[in-house]
Protein backbone atom coordinates (compact mmCIF):
# COMPACT_ATOMS: atom_id res chain seq x y z
CA UNK A 1 0.00 0.00 0.00
CA UNK A 2 1.30 3.46 -0.82
CA UNK A 3 1.43 6.25 1.73
CA UNK A 4 -1.58 8.51 1.58
CA UNK A 5 -3.31 11.28 3.47
CA UNK A 6 -6.62 10.76 5.20
CA UNK A 7 -9.53 13.17 5.40
CA UNK A 8 -13.00 12.72 6.74
CA UNK A 9 -15.74 14.43 4.81
CA UNK A 10 -18.25 16.35 6.90
CA UNK A 11 -20.95 16.36 4.27
CA UNK A 12 -21.42 15.64 0.58
CA UNK A 13 -20.29 19.12 -0.46
CA UNK A 14 -17.17 18.69 1.63
CA UNK A 15 -16.42 15.37 -0.08
CA UNK A 16 -16.75 17.01 -3.48
CA UNK A 17 -14.49 19.89 -2.41
CA UNK A 18 -11.85 17.49 -1.11
CA UNK A 19 -11.99 15.48 -4.32
CA UNK A 20 -11.65 18.55 -6.46
CA UNK A 21 -8.70 19.77 -4.42
CA UNK A 22 -6.58 16.65 -4.88
CA UNK A 23 -6.49 14.97 -8.28
CA UNK A 24 -5.09 11.80 -6.71
CA UNK A 25 -7.79 11.53 -4.07
CA UNK A 26 -10.35 8.76 -3.84
CA UNK A 27 -13.48 8.26 -1.82
CA UNK A 28 -13.68 5.39 0.63
CA UNK A 29 -16.78 3.96 2.23
CA UNK A 30 -16.79 0.19 2.85
CA UNK A 31 -13.31 -0.12 1.39
CA UNK A 32 -13.72 -3.78 0.48
CA UNK A 33 -12.50 -3.34 -3.07
CA UNK A 34 -10.36 -0.21 -2.79
CA UNK A 35 -8.24 -1.41 0.13
CA UNK A 36 -7.75 -4.73 -1.60
CA UNK A 37 -6.52 -2.96 -4.74
CA UNK A 38 -4.34 -0.60 -2.73
CA UNK A 39 -2.69 -3.57 -1.07
CA UNK A 40 -1.92 -4.87 -4.57
CA UNK A 41 -0.51 -1.45 -5.56
CA UNK A 42 -3.10 -1.29 -8.33
CA UNK A 43 -4.78 1.72 -6.75
CA UNK A 44 -2.39 4.33 -5.36
CA UNK A 45 -4.47 7.26 -4.17
CA UNK A 46 -2.69 10.25 -2.68
CA UNK A 47 -5.58 10.81 -0.30
CA UNK A 48 -8.53 8.84 0.96
CA UNK A 49 -11.65 10.79 1.71
CA UNK A 50 -13.69 8.93 4.27
CA UNK A 51 -17.37 9.31 3.42
CA UNK A 52 -18.56 6.46 5.64
CA UNK A 53 -20.13 8.84 8.15
CA UNK A 54 -22.13 10.89 5.68
CA UNK A 55 -25.88 10.71 6.18
CA UNK A 56 -26.58 8.63 3.08
CA UNK A 57 -27.97 5.60 4.83
CA UNK A 58 -31.72 5.98 4.39
CA UNK A 59 -34.05 3.83 2.38
CA UNK A 60 -37.17 5.82 1.62
CA UNK A 61 -40.18 5.62 -0.64
CA UNK A 62 -40.30 8.04 -3.53
CA UNK A 63 -43.38 9.98 -4.60
CA UNK A 64 -43.94 7.74 -7.62
CA UNK A 65 -43.90 4.57 -5.52
CA UNK A 66 -40.29 3.63 -6.04
CA UNK A 67 -37.48 3.54 -3.49
CA UNK A 68 -34.52 5.77 -2.94
CA UNK A 69 -31.54 4.02 -1.39
CA UNK A 70 -28.76 6.06 0.17
CA UNK A 71 -25.37 5.31 -1.35
CA UNK A 72 -23.92 4.29 2.01
CA UNK A 73 -26.49 1.65 2.90
CA UNK A 74 -24.49 -1.51 3.53
CA UNK A 75 -25.19 -4.29 1.03
CA UNK A 76 -26.49 -6.61 3.73
CA UNK A 77 -28.87 -4.01 5.17
CA UNK A 78 -30.27 -3.47 1.73
CA UNK A 79 -30.67 -7.18 1.02
CA UNK A 80 -32.50 -7.78 4.29
CA UNK A 81 -34.58 -4.58 4.28
CA UNK A 82 -38.30 -5.42 4.45
CA UNK A 83 -39.21 -3.08 1.59
CA UNK A 84 -36.55 -4.64 -0.64
CA UNK A 85 -37.52 -8.14 0.37
CA UNK A 86 -41.19 -7.57 -0.27
CA UNK A 87 -40.99 -5.44 -3.36
CA UNK A 88 -37.62 -5.99 -5.00
CA UNK A 89 -36.66 -9.54 -4.06
CA UNK A 90 -34.59 -9.82 -7.26
CA UNK A 91 -32.25 -7.19 -5.86
CA UNK A 92 -32.09 -8.88 -2.47
CA UNK A 93 -31.28 -12.20 -4.09
CA UNK A 94 -28.55 -10.74 -6.29
CA UNK A 95 -26.88 -9.05 -3.35
CA UNK A 96 -26.94 -12.26 -1.33
CA UNK A 97 -25.35 -14.12 -4.24
CA UNK A 98 -22.28 -11.93 -4.00
CA UNK A 99 -19.22 -11.93 -1.77
CA UNK A 100 -19.54 -13.11 1.84
CA UNK A 101 -21.68 -12.08 4.80
CA UNK A 102 -18.75 -10.08 6.19
CA UNK A 103 -18.07 -8.23 2.96
CA UNK A 104 -21.76 -7.50 2.49
CA UNK A 105 -21.82 -6.01 5.98
CA UNK A 106 -19.02 -3.65 5.00
CA UNK A 107 -19.63 -2.83 1.35
CA UNK A 108 -21.81 0.14 0.51
CA UNK A 109 -24.32 0.32 -2.30
CA UNK A 110 -22.39 3.10 -4.01
CA UNK A 111 -19.11 1.27 -3.60
CA UNK A 112 -20.60 -1.85 -5.10
CA UNK A 113 -21.25 0.10 -8.29
CA UNK A 114 -17.61 1.19 -8.30
CA UNK A 115 -16.01 -2.21 -7.83
CA UNK A 116 -13.38 -3.00 -10.38
CA UNK A 117 -12.72 -6.07 -12.47
CA UNK A 118 -11.19 -9.29 -11.16
CA UNK A 119 -9.11 -9.71 -14.33
CA UNK A 120 -5.85 -11.26 -13.06
CA UNK A 121 -3.74 -9.06 -15.30
CA UNK A 122 -5.39 -5.97 -13.87
CA UNK A 123 -4.35 -7.20 -10.43
CA UNK A 124 -0.79 -8.19 -11.34
CA UNK A 125 1.35 -5.09 -11.68
CA UNK A 126 4.07 -7.14 -13.38
CA UNK A 127 1.94 -7.71 -16.48
CA UNK A 128 0.63 -5.31 -19.13
CA UNK A 129 -2.95 -4.09 -18.69
CA UNK A 130 -4.67 -1.20 -20.43
CA UNK A 131 -7.13 -0.76 -17.60
CA UNK A 132 -4.41 -0.36 -15.02
CA UNK A 133 -1.81 1.35 -17.21
CA UNK A 134 -3.33 2.70 -20.40
CA UNK A 135 -1.32 1.92 -23.48
CA UNK A 136 0.53 -1.12 -22.13
CA UNK A 137 -1.70 -3.63 -23.91
CA UNK A 138 -4.24 -6.23 -22.89
CA UNK A 139 -2.66 -9.44 -21.62
CA UNK A 140 -5.97 -11.26 -21.51
CA UNK A 141 -6.73 -11.05 -25.23
CA UNK A 142 -4.30 -13.84 -26.01
CA UNK A 143 -3.72 -14.99 -22.47
CA UNK A 144 -5.81 -16.63 -19.80
CA UNK A 145 -9.33 -15.48 -20.57
CA UNK A 146 -11.60 -18.21 -19.28
CA UNK A 147 -13.49 -15.73 -17.15
CA UNK A 148 -13.42 -12.80 -19.54
CA UNK A 149 -16.06 -10.97 -21.49
CA UNK A 150 -17.88 -12.26 -24.54
CA UNK A 151 -19.95 -9.15 -25.20
CA UNK A 152 -19.08 -5.52 -25.74
CA UNK A 153 -15.35 -6.14 -25.73
CA UNK A 154 -12.73 -4.06 -27.46
CA UNK A 155 -9.19 -4.58 -28.66
CA UNK A 156 -8.10 -2.79 -25.53
CA UNK A 157 -9.87 -4.82 -22.88
CA UNK A 158 -11.99 -7.92 -22.35
CA UNK A 159 -12.46 -7.53 -18.61
CA UNK A 160 -15.80 -8.15 -16.90
CA UNK A 161 -17.62 -6.23 -14.23
CA UNK A 162 -17.77 -8.47 -11.14
CA UNK A 163 -20.82 -7.00 -9.39
CA UNK A 164 -23.93 -9.09 -8.78
CA UNK A 165 -25.97 -6.23 -7.36
CA UNK A 166 -25.47 -4.14 -10.48
CA UNK A 167 -26.92 -6.88 -12.66
CA UNK A 168 -30.18 -6.82 -10.73
CA UNK A 169 -30.17 -3.02 -10.65
CA UNK A 170 -29.72 -2.97 -14.42
CA UNK A 171 -32.67 -5.29 -14.88
CA UNK A 172 -34.80 -3.24 -12.53
CA UNK A 173 -34.04 -0.03 -14.41
CA UNK A 174 -32.43 1.71 -11.48
CA UNK A 175 -31.19 5.28 -11.57
CA UNK A 176 -27.90 6.46 -10.12
CA UNK A 177 -28.00 9.84 -8.38
CA UNK A 178 -24.75 11.73 -8.54
CA UNK A 179 -23.56 14.96 -6.96
CA UNK A 180 -20.63 16.97 -8.21
CA UNK A 181 -19.11 20.43 -8.44
CA UNK A 182 -21.62 21.30 -11.16
CA UNK A 183 -24.61 20.13 -9.13
CA UNK A 184 -26.64 16.97 -9.11
CA UNK A 185 -27.51 14.67 -11.97
CA UNK A 186 -28.87 11.21 -12.42
CA UNK A 187 -28.19 8.51 -14.99
CA UNK A 188 -29.70 5.14 -15.72
CA UNK A 189 -27.65 2.37 -14.19
CA UNK A 190 -27.28 0.85 -17.65
CA UNK A 191 -25.52 4.03 -18.71
CA UNK A 192 -23.45 4.33 -15.56
CA UNK A 193 -20.95 1.61 -16.42
CA UNK A 194 -19.03 1.98 -19.66
CA UNK A 195 -17.90 -0.43 -22.31
CA UNK A 196 -14.12 -0.53 -22.54
CA UNK A 197 -13.70 0.91 -26.05
CA UNK A 198 -10.27 2.50 -26.16
CA UNK A 199 -10.48 3.80 -22.60
CA UNK A 200 -10.78 0.70 -20.42
CA UNK A 201 -9.21 2.62 -17.53
CA UNK A 202 -12.61 4.26 -17.14
CA UNK A 203 -15.14 1.84 -15.67
CA UNK A 204 -17.97 4.34 -15.28
CA UNK A 205 -19.15 7.77 -16.39
CA UNK A 206 -18.62 9.17 -12.89
CA UNK A 207 -16.62 12.39 -13.08
CA UNK A 208 -13.42 12.83 -11.10
CA UNK A 209 -15.00 15.02 -8.44
CA UNK A 210 -18.39 13.38 -8.39
CA UNK A 211 -19.95 11.20 -5.75
CA UNK A 212 -22.81 8.73 -5.90
CA UNK A 213 -25.45 9.82 -3.42
CA UNK A 214 -28.27 7.37 -4.02
CA UNK A 215 -29.75 4.63 -6.14
CA UNK A 216 -33.36 4.97 -7.14
CA UNK A 217 -35.57 2.02 -7.93
CA UNK A 218 -38.58 2.69 -10.14
CA UNK A 219 -41.99 1.45 -8.96
CA UNK A 220 -41.94 -1.58 -11.24
CA UNK A 221 -40.60 -4.12 -8.77
CA UNK A 222 -41.33 -7.64 -10.03
CA UNK A 223 -42.12 -9.05 -6.60
CA UNK A 224 -43.31 -12.45 -7.81
CA UNK A 225 -41.78 -13.62 -11.07
CA UNK A 226 -38.05 -13.15 -10.82
CA UNK A 227 -34.86 -15.10 -10.35
CA UNK A 228 -31.19 -14.31 -9.89
CA UNK A 229 -29.20 -17.28 -11.11
CA UNK A 230 -25.45 -17.17 -10.61
CA UNK A 231 -23.19 -19.84 -12.08
CA UNK A 232 -19.69 -20.06 -10.65
CA UNK A 233 -16.77 -22.41 -10.06
CA UNK A 234 -17.70 -23.21 -6.49
CA UNK A 235 -21.04 -23.01 -4.81
CA UNK A 236 -20.44 -19.82 -2.84
CA UNK A 237 -17.94 -17.01 -2.38
CA UNK A 238 -16.81 -16.93 -5.99
CA UNK A 239 -17.27 -14.48 -8.81
CA UNK A 240 -19.77 -15.31 -11.52
CA UNK A 241 -18.84 -17.12 -14.69
CA UNK A 242 -22.29 -16.08 -15.81
CA UNK A 243 -25.19 -14.64 -13.88
CA UNK A 244 -28.70 -13.79 -14.93
CA UNK A 245 -31.20 -11.40 -13.47
CA UNK A 246 -34.60 -12.27 -14.86
CA UNK A 247 -37.88 -10.56 -14.02
CA UNK A 248 -41.21 -10.81 -15.76
CA UNK A 249 -44.83 -9.94 -15.28
CA UNK A 250 -47.43 -12.41 -16.39
CA UNK A 251 -51.02 -12.07 -17.44
CA UNK A 252 -52.16 -15.61 -17.48
CA UNK A 253 -49.34 -17.36 -19.26
CA UNK A 254 -48.52 -14.32 -21.37
CA UNK A 255 -45.58 -12.11 -20.61
CA UNK A 256 -46.61 -8.48 -20.23
CA UNK A 257 -43.27 -7.13 -19.08
CA UNK A 258 -39.80 -8.62 -19.07
CA UNK A 259 -36.35 -7.66 -17.86
CA UNK A 260 -33.15 -9.55 -18.45
CA UNK A 261 -29.60 -8.72 -17.52
CA UNK A 262 -26.41 -10.75 -17.63
CA UNK A 263 -23.43 -10.57 -15.33
CA UNK A 264 -19.94 -11.97 -15.83
CA UNK A 265 -20.05 -11.55 -19.59
CA UNK A 266 -19.20 -7.91 -20.23
CA UNK A 267 -17.57 -4.76 -18.93
CA UNK A 268 -21.00 -3.79 -17.61
CA UNK A 269 -24.27 -5.48 -16.75
CA UNK A 270 -25.59 -6.61 -20.11
CA UNK A 271 -29.15 -5.77 -21.11
CA UNK A 272 -30.88 -5.87 -24.45
CA UNK A 273 -34.10 -3.98 -25.07
CA UNK A 274 -34.60 -6.12 -28.15
CA UNK A 275 -34.50 -9.33 -26.15
CA UNK A 276 -36.96 -7.99 -23.61
CA UNK A 277 -39.26 -6.65 -26.31
CA UNK A 278 -39.27 -10.06 -27.94
CA UNK A 279 -40.66 -11.57 -24.76
CA UNK A 280 -43.49 -9.11 -24.30
CA UNK A 281 -46.79 -10.50 -25.42
CA UNK A 282 -45.40 -14.00 -25.79
CA UNK A 283 -46.33 -17.10 -23.87
CA UNK A 284 -43.91 -18.00 -21.12
CA UNK A 285 -42.37 -21.00 -22.85
CA UNK A 286 -38.79 -22.25 -23.06
CA UNK A 287 -38.79 -21.61 -26.79
CA UNK A 288 -39.57 -17.96 -26.35
CA UNK A 289 -37.05 -17.75 -23.54
CA UNK A 290 -34.43 -19.28 -25.80
CA UNK A 291 -35.19 -16.78 -28.52
CA UNK A 292 -34.79 -13.93 -26.07
CA UNK A 293 -31.52 -15.42 -24.87
CA UNK A 294 -30.26 -15.53 -28.44
CA UNK A 295 -31.13 -11.87 -28.90
CA UNK A 296 -29.46 -10.97 -25.64
CA UNK A 297 -26.32 -12.82 -26.70
CA UNK A 298 -26.26 -11.42 -30.19
CA UNK A 299 -22.73 -10.55 -31.18
CA UNK A 300 -21.15 -12.63 -28.46
CA UNK A 301 -17.54 -13.32 -29.41
CA UNK A 302 -15.48 -15.97 -27.69
CA UNK A 303 -11.77 -15.85 -27.01
CA UNK A 304 -9.59 -18.94 -26.58
CA UNK A 305 -10.95 -20.09 -23.22
CA UNK A 306 -14.33 -18.48 -22.66
CA UNK A 307 -16.39 -19.88 -25.51
CA UNK A 308 -18.35 -22.00 -23.05
CA UNK A 309 -19.88 -18.83 -21.64
CA UNK A 310 -22.04 -18.35 -24.70
CA UNK A 311 -23.82 -21.69 -24.35
CA UNK A 312 -23.82 -21.39 -20.57
CA UNK A 313 -25.34 -17.92 -20.66
CA UNK A 314 -28.02 -19.02 -23.08
CA UNK A 315 -29.01 -21.95 -20.90
CA UNK A 316 -28.84 -19.88 -17.74
CA UNK A 317 -31.13 -17.24 -19.24
CA UNK A 318 -33.68 -19.86 -20.19
CA UNK A 319 -33.48 -21.47 -16.77
CA UNK A 320 -33.75 -18.19 -14.90
CA UNK A 321 -36.80 -17.26 -16.96
CA UNK A 322 -38.38 -20.64 -16.25
CA UNK A 323 -37.73 -20.07 -12.55
CA UNK A 324 -39.19 -16.59 -12.81
CA UNK A 325 -42.25 -17.72 -14.72
CA UNK A 326 -42.99 -20.45 -12.21
CA UNK A 327 -42.40 -18.11 -9.28
CA UNK A 328 -39.67 -20.41 -7.95
CA UNK A 329 -36.69 -18.08 -7.81
CA UNK A 330 -33.24 -19.49 -7.28
CA UNK A 331 -32.39 -19.76 -3.59
CA UNK A 332 -28.91 -18.49 -2.77
CA UNK A 333 -28.59 -20.89 0.16
CA UNK A 334 -30.12 -24.07 -1.25
CA UNK A 335 -27.84 -24.85 -4.12
CA UNK A 336 -30.00 -27.12 -6.21
CA UNK A 337 -31.06 -25.22 -9.31
CA UNK A 338 -34.76 -25.85 -9.74
Amino acid sequence: MNNFQYSRAGDVADAIRLLAADPGAKLIAGGTNLIDLMKENVERPSRLIDISRLPLRDIEETADGGLRIGALVPNSDLAYHPLINQRYPLLASAILAGASAQLRNMASVGGNLMQRTRCPYFYDTATPCNKRRPGTGCSALDGLNRNHAILGTSKSCIATNPSDMSVALAALGALVHIAGPMGARSVALTDFHRLPDDKPNLDTILGRSEIITAIELPPHSFPRNYSYLKIRDRLSYAFALVSVAAAIELEGNAISEARLALGGVAHKPWRSMEAEAALRGQAATPDHFGHAADLLLQGATPRAHNGFKIALARRAVVRALIQAASATPQSQAHKKIA
Partner: peptide, 17 residues
Protein backbone atom coordinates in the same frame (compact mmCIF):
# COMPACT_ATOMS: atom_id res chain seq x y z
CA UNK B 1 3.77 -16.17 -13.78
CA UNK B 2 1.05 -17.69 -11.65
CA UNK B 3 -2.09 -15.68 -12.35
CA UNK B 4 -4.29 -16.85 -9.48
CA UNK B 5 -1.85 -16.50 -6.60
CA UNK B 6 -4.54 -15.74 -4.05
CA UNK B 7 -7.41 -17.58 -2.39
CA UNK B 8 -10.21 -15.84 -4.21
CA UNK B 9 -9.36 -17.29 -7.62
CA UNK B 10 -7.41 -20.33 -6.44
CA UNK B 11 -10.55 -22.08 -5.30
CA UNK B 12 -10.60 -24.34 -2.31
CA UNK B 13 -13.95 -25.66 -1.10
CA UNK B 14 -16.03 -23.31 1.03
CA UNK B 15 -18.60 -24.37 3.58
CA UNK B 16 -21.39 -24.40 0.98
CA UNK B 17 -19.49 -26.92 -1.14
Amino acid sequence: RIMNANIAEYHIPVNAD
